[in-house]
Computed example of a mutant assay.
Amino acid sequence: MDGLPKHGRVECRRCFSGCGPQFDVTKEQNDNWRITSNPLSWGSAEPEVVVLGFSKGPTQAGALANTPHDEIAYKGSRLNVGKILAHVGLVPQVGDNQLKQIVDQMMADDGGRFHFGSLIRCTVERFDHKAQDWKGSGGGMLDKFVGTDFGQRIAKNCATEFLTHLPDRTKLIVMFGLGTKQNYVTEAFKLFERVRPGPWHWINEVAYSDSIITVVHVEHFASQGALIPNWLGKNSHERSKFGMMARSAVKDALS
């Protein structure tokens, strides 16, 4: 594939051996990690801004069988998505109901300004030995996965397939997630260096650029407790500096 996928289900077999994978059935596993073949895409394939989560969490993955496509992405967390995007200046600062409606409309608009998806388009899960079950969320999920050999291979495949050749119009990639002590930011920077060779440089602690696109990391929309309010600057907390850095980098990327 050359560029971003169109709105809907995505045809991709890069990470799966043998014949073509069956959607939401075929899996690839290595030790305590696995992926399920269910890549999806929302919004425009020719966007100015690409917005990426890490992978479909259990709420989104569990909705695939019985939820309309336009309602799957960021299911249950769209208000947080709106608050985060508003904080960095990508959508208006409005009331909660209107903000959620804006996000709903953006997700469904296949000819608009935004593209939505995830860095790993398929569902990532980790085996929880205590619960003896597979989990699609949990502490350190992002940076721990991309820190394994299996995760590195999957991430490189996915980024090569969908992020190497971006439309000329695309100027900004917004990545949900910072990781433990910014580990996810660091690993993502290395990934972009591998799949898009160029003059990559750091703008600040949460943003980097190759002078063509700028990548900005923001708080994860499913973060618990005070993490999102702290990042938004609602509380007096040092984490708010990351929100301010993200806002500054977004403004510069689109100016």
Rank of each mutant, 00 (worst) to 15 (best):
V88H: 00
H129N: 10
H69W: 05
R126T: 05
H165R: 09
M141P: 04
T123G: 01
S44M: 03
D210Q: 07
K83G: 05
G43E: 04
E205Q: 15
G147L: 04
M244I: 13
G147I: 04
N80W: 07
G53I: 04
D252Y: 06
E46H: 15
Q22T: 14
N66F: 08
D24N: 14
P47I: 02
F145S: 02
Q98T: 15
N32Y: 09
V50I: 15
G112K: 01
H115G: 03
E193N: 11
L178R: 02
R14G: 06
G57K: 00
A159M: 10
W202K: 06
Q182F: 15
V195G: 06
I228R: 00
K100C: 10
T170M: 02
Q98C: 10
S211N: 13
S137Q: 09
Q60D: 11
I154D: 02
G76H: 05
V103A: 00
E28S: 14
E71V: 09
D110F: 09
G95E: 11
S211Y: 07
K144Y: 10
H7F: 11
E161P: 08
E193F: 09
K56M: 14
G147F: 04
Q98K: 11
G136L: 01
K6W: 10
K156H: 13
P68E: 12
Q93F: 12
N183P: 08
G82Y: 05
V124H: 03
T67D: 07
E219I: 09
M244T: 14
T214C: 07
V146E: 06
I154T: 06
P5S: 01
N30L: 11
I213A: 10
A188T: 15
E187C: 08
A246G: 08
I102K: 00
S17K: 11
G111M: 01
L85M: 11
G225D: 12
M175Q: 15
I72Q: 01
K27M: 15
D104S: 09
H87N: 11
N38V: 14
F242L: 11
Q29S: 11
W33F: 14
L99A: 05
